[in-house]
Write a protein that binds this DNA or RNA. Structure first.
Lengths: 130, 130
DNA sequence: CGGGATCCCCAATGATACTG
DNA sequence: CAGTATCATTGGGGATCCCG
């Protein structure tokens, strides 16, 4: 998987210069798929509004999500440095999640997308097709 | 666009008022999942920039997509009234796709998301995890 | 309480072949 | 050229059990 796109001259070009969405080898694609899901949209919004929430509370505020998906999604967001996990060493343990500054910056474009979806939903109103 | 933000009177209240992303029964969720994919992001961008393109050309400009996925994705966009399909009755037939005004309006929030992904890719740089 | 491990099933996706 | 139909594969995601 050589990234022969536009490696900066004189720079050890292992890193991708910038996001080239159209380069199949570019992780930007996968990133987009990761942050484009409904779960991410919901969780980021919830955290953006509430600041910090515990696992159970987050689950309660995300109707329909399974425990597995929540944990999995949170892990992904953590790996991408969009969310920070804070553990309180009590018994039983209490774990809280909140957005990093980067995560907060993501909320803006995501909000635009959410808003678009909510706004234009009526006129799209896909008539359920099998 | 004066869809009432409330369910139609006299109708079984199954319908969702407006975008309530947090209502599991709301199609806004599914919509979000549909427009959040990388293929949609790429195709919408390409069409937004080029105006109208034929199937083969669109495929050429979307590296990595299969014929099936392209057709499928275009169908979805068509069903959502984001893309229009124009057929010229020649032999062999020529089919072109372009964005509807609604589709063009989607390009804006999507562009924000693409831009965010491309911009912050470097600092995320998820260290490949097996 | 938070979440890792496991099993299992269906839907999404790719590859190939065929048609209007 | 622009798809559709069919088949095979996979892995996403729910349910369940268990552990720190």
């Amino acid at each position: 998987m050589e990234d022969g796109t536009s490696a900066p001259p004189g720079h050890s070009g292992v890193t991708t210069p910038r996001g080239d969405l159209f380069n199949p080898a570019c992780p930007t694609r996968q990133l987009l798929d990761r942050i484009g899901t409904k779960w991410v949209a919901m969780i980021v919004k919830t955290l953006a509004e509430s600041g910090e929430l515990r696992y159970a509370e987050l689950k309660r505020r995300t109707p329909g999500i399974s425990a597995k998906m929540l944990a999995q999604t949170l892990r992904g967001l953590e790996n991408d440095h969009l969310v920070v996990r804070r553990v309180e060493p009590t018994v039983p343990p209490a774990v809280s999640y909140s957005l990093t500054p980067l995560g907060q910056s993501l909320d803006q474009p995501l909000a635009a997308l959410r808003d678009w979806a909510e706004t234009h939903m009526p006129e799209i109103n896909r008539a359920a097709r099998p």
